[in-house]
């Protein structure tokens, strides 16, 4: 564990295990938890497209998810009720599977993205995840009060002259970029497990919003550390171990 070989992947995942449960709490607040799966699949498709096109996969993944997050509001009128996320999920999955089926290189990366390939994270990934995660936490903190106010008192929010689009579009973009970053390192389902399960439990158990954020964070970090140790010790892929462990924790706490 002390070896650089595993320390760097561990620290990379730890940053994401702090960020994703907090992001997931605000996605759940907006009833948009499906967004986590949607952006992860779009990021995976973007990464494979970039690979096939001769570009850096991580950049393709982040760019595709960022584009999806930024342009979601343009179609909000026609795609209400979570339809946009369902379409993005299906589209991302379809493109990723077709590329993997027709390109040997894409097949290998596709397996890695869908299995969860944290142990391959290196200094380059860590150097993006640490500042990116910190920046995301700062932005999330700035958006937090307006996200809550817009949810509880949408009319009050509007008549106070608070502009909705910087909060909504800013959060959409933030969620997309964070999930792309997470997908590139934890895999599609590993990222989804950290976004969905800790906030779900926190919403059920916490006595207030602040305590809920702390509870989600603690569950996420605890589950991550335990899953990392188990997967490493048993030589298993990280993503499924993390998902199973969080499911067990979820069933016990819920």
């Amino acid at each position: 564990m002390a070896s650089d070989l595993f320390l760097i992947p561990f620290l990379t995942g730890l940053c994401l295990a702090v960020l994703l449960p907090l992001l997931g709490a605000y996605l759940r607040l907006r009833d948009e938890w499906l967004a986590a799966l949607a952006y992860s699949h779009v990021a995976a498709a973007g990464a494979l497209l970039a690979l096939v096109g001769g570009f850096v996969p991580a950049i393709g993944g982040v760019a595709a998810a960022g584009l999806a997050g930024a342009s979601k509001r343009l179609f909000a009128g026609r795609l209400s009720g979570g339809a946009s996320y369902a379409l993005l999920l299906l589209g991302g999955w379809a493109v990723a599977v077709l590329l993997a089926a027709n390109q040997p290189m894409a097949e290998r990366l596709g397996h890695a993205l869908f299995d969860g390939q944290l142990y391959f994270a290196g200094p380059a990934q860590l150097s993006v995840v640490v500042p990116g995660g910190l920046l995301a936490l700062v932005v999330l903190r700035r958006l937090a009060k307006n996200l809550l106010l817009a949810h509880v008192y949408p009319d009050f929010f509007r008549i106070r002259g608070l502009r909705a689009w910087p909060t909504q579009s800013g959060f959409d973009l933030l969620a997309a970029l964070c999930l792309a970053l997470a997908t590139m390192n934890l895999g599609v389902m590993g990222a989804f497990a950290l976004v969905f399960i800790p906030p779900w439990l926190a919403f059920r158990r916490a006595r207030n919003w602040r305590a809920g954020l702390w509870l989600a964070l603690l569950i996420g970090v605890f589950g991550y550390v335990l899953a990392f140790g188990i997967a490493l010790g048993l030589d298993q892929p990280f993503g499924p171990v993390l998902a199973l462990l969080l499911i067990v924790i979820g069933l016990v706490i819920a």
Partner: peptide, 12 residues
């Protein structure tokens, strides 16, 4: 939603 009354008042 885990939101307390005190937090609701703080929001507005």
């Amino acid at each position: 939603l885990p939101l307390s009354g005190r937090e609701l008042l703080q929001l507005t």
